[in-house]
Design a protein around this nucleic acid. Structure first.
Lengths: 174, 174
DNA sequence: TACTGATAGTCAGCATACTGATCAATATCC
DNA sequence: GGATATTGATCAGTATGCTGACTATCAGTA
């Protein structure tokens, strides 16, 4: 008896799906955010399980510094498509953790040359399995072929939209 | 003549691509971040061009409040897969802009019931073309079929990884 | 009814990310 | 050579997002 009135008062929370012309939850933008949210969580969990404390950006920056010793911050930002103002803080933390060094450039006194330290190299080497495991986990709902196709489509969409964000990818000029 | 020595001194910035076993720039996690970065930039640009000041989260929250009047913050967070601590700030700003209201719940004194205001409703209605335009733009590099396939794969990967982030999607219980 | 556990919301703290500004140094142009 | 523009780095300010903790409240139970 009481049960009836209670049931009647429950708001119909699924109304969005039926009423809205376009469900915000099914828009490309929302799917992009959600997938990235999961990707970051998986990355951090795998890396922490391996005994390290490194964020996705920090990993990308460190790997890029190792591959391009002595590069400056703007170039680094372009190579991994981050805003240069974000990179400032990321490098701060890599330096503070002893994984990278920031030196004044002799050629351009405005610029800082970035180097990876021995500990940074060691960290990078030992963290790789966790990073690769994370990539597998975030695609675990897809077959190998579907995973490849997802990556192909993302690459294509990203290439077409590269200049739409403040921090586009800048290919190296070598 | 001078040209020769200059060319020789240019660092080989593309070394990453050839040396690394796995290019960080081509990992699923990086592609996810990059696509989302573009999606957010496009959303904000389109919305601003239309004369509004609303972020993607704010839009999603407002649309969900409109579709589910009187819902509480935890339920809202679950419906759009955001952490409840993030939602606190988002609602703060929606309230401050006069687009939503936060009322004490009569049934549960811990909870806040959320309502959209008339101005919120008006904003939502007038902003819709910009939001939809943004979704098209972020997929502009893909054919219609490819866009559909990308969304299908994202949905599938997200469904499989739903519980891997702190803020999983919680379907309504209606 | 008192105890225990769970839940709604908030907060402090941290790390992305962005906009827009500033400063120092370099490039460019007349 | 000197004015002008550009560039590398940083900073202030704002908004996501997260972790972990805390308070107030509610729910279930002994």
């Amino acid at each position: 008896m009481l049960t009836i009135s209670i049931l009647v008062n429950i708001p119909r929370l699924s109304a969005a799906k039926e009423n809205s012309v376009s469900d915000p939850n099914d828009m490309p933008g929302h799917l992009a955010r959600r997938f990235q949210q999961i990707a970051v969580a998986v990355f951090l969990a795998e890396v922490e399980d391996a005994g390290f404390d490194l964020t996705p950006v920090q990993y990308a920056a460190l790997a890029t510094i190792k591959a391009n010793p002595g590069l400056d911050q703007v170039t680094l930002a372009g190579l991994i498509a981050y805003d240069r103002t974000t990179i400032t803080g990321v490098i701060d933390r890599l330096v503070q953790k002893g994984l990278a060094e920031r030196r004044a450039s002799s050629r351009d006194r405005r610029a800082r040359e970035l180097e990876i330290t021995d500990e940074g190299r060691r960290t990078l080497r030992r963290i790789t399995p966790a990073v690769e495991s994370a990539q597998r986990i975030m695609l675990r709902g897809l077959s190998a072929k579907e995973g490849e196709e997802l990556m192909r489509l993302l690459r294509k969409a990203i290439a077409a939209g590269n200049d739409l964000s403040r921090a586009p990818l800048r290919e190296s000029q070598a």
